Every structure is written in C-alpha cells, then in structure tokens.
Simulated scan of single mutants.
Amino acid sequence: MQESIKSIFTESIQAQIAAGEVLPDALESAAFTIVQGLINGNKLLCCGADNCHMLAEHMAGLLVNFYETERPCLPAVALAQTSVHLGQSTTSDDADRFSRQVRAFAQQGDLLLVIAVNGNEKDIVSAAEAALTKDMKVIALVGDDGGELTGLLGPSDVEIRVPSKRPSRIVESHLFIIHCLSQLIDNALFPQGEQ
C-alpha cells in the first residue's frame, strides 16, 4: 500500500511540474485581466462544475477576504449552485443555473471565472455563453482538451488548461492555480516590497 501512496504523490507532483511548464503565460494574462477589471470598478463572478464549485467559492472568498496578507476587500462572488423554481420541476444539474445568474447580476465589464474538468459541463458552457453575450471577459480553468468551452473563448478571454486527463490531478492543479492567481492579484494591487 505504501508504494501505491508514493505513486499517487509522484503522479500529482509530475502533473504540477507539467502545469508549471505550460501555464505561466496564461496565469500572467489571467491575473492581469482580473487586476484590470478590479481597477476599473468591476467584479469577478465565479462558478464551477459540480466537482469544482467549492473552488469557485474558495476563489471568491479569497478576494473578498484575503489570501495570506490582510488587505481591503475585493468585489467577487460565487454564483449559487442551486436553483429554486416554483414552476416546472428541475433537476439539481440544471444547465441554466449559472447562466441565469450571469444574466441577472453581471454588468458589462465584469469578469466570469469558470472552473471545469473537461469543458463539456453544460452549466459551465451556458454560463460562458451568457457572459459573452454581455461582453464580459471569461477566464476558464479547464483540463483535458478544453472541450466545448475552449471553442467559445475569444481573443480577450483567458484559458488556463491543465495538461492532464485525470480529473483528480486537474482539480488539484485548479486549487494551486487559484492560490497562484490570488497571490499575483495581491502583489499587483497591494505590493508589499520584496516578495
């Protein structure tokens, strides 16, 4: 069993090394996009597929509160994962649960951060489509080949695609990416001297 445990750690480390080789440009672009949006008085809306929504909540919480150093609040919100309808019955995986919130709450210039494993999750694709109809920039954290989500993104959007097909490795990398973005945003908006 211990060899299996070591193998899991090794695979995770190798996935992080691979991500570290291919993602710096995308991370820099995403951080710059978020910083510019916040400076311009806009907010970041965050949502994630079922297995990633806690990461969207975590990102919004890090901006509203703080990452490692106390600083003023930044405007970010995680979209609600559940929908309430009194009319027709819907399922918990309602494909419109995030897109309706984007249409209701987003203003032009706001940003949407979507987090998915393979980019084919219907609720995430719908949210990105809704954001694009409002001229919002989309930052997509995704893995595998990026799926349908990748095809929606334009030149002003940012794709951060983890180079892995394993859902567990992708989600682990997403958490690391969120922490990296939080640090980059804090460093840009609230420089503390030498880091």
Rank of each mutant, 00 (worst) to 15 (best):
V114L: 00
L112M: 05
A131Q: 04
V142D: 09
S126K: 00
E172C: 07
S12Q: 14
C73Q: 14
E194R: 14
M136V: 06
V158C: 11
H179R: 07
T33P: 00
N40P: 01
A95S: 15
V84S: 10
A76P: 03
R103Y: 02
L184Q: 11
G154L: 12
D186F: 02
L86I: 12
G147H: 12
L181W: 06
A19G: 12
Q36Y: 03
T133Q: 10
V125D: 02
V125I: 08
C46V: 00
C52N: 11
A116R: 02
G20Y: 14
L27A: 04
T150Q: 14
V171N: 09
L184V: 00
V77D: 00
V84P: 04
I170C: 09
L44E: 09
S173D: 09
L74S: 04
A104H: 01
L112D: 04
H85R: 12
N65P: 01
R166P: 00
K134W: 01
M136N: 03
I139M: 04
K6C: 10
E3C: 05
S164Y: 06
S99Q: 00
M59N: 03
G143I: 02
P163Q: 10
V158E: 07
H58D: 15
S173R: 06
I8G: 04
E68F: 08
D50E: 09
V162E: 13
I170P: 09
N118F: 02
V162L: 03
L181K: 06
S4W: 11
E159Q: 15
D50M: 10
G154R: 15
G154A: 14
H85Q: 08
H85I: 08
A131F: 01
D186E: 14
L113V: 13
T90C: 05
L149M: 12
R161C: 13
P72R: 11
I17G: 05
N42F: 13
E194I: 15
P24T: 02
S29G: 01
A188K: 07
A60V: 10
G41V: 03
T91W: 12
E70W: 11
S156N: 12
L132A: 02
K6F: 14
I39W: 08
A15W: 01
L113F: 07
P191C: 11
A15L: 02
I139L: 12
Y67S: 15
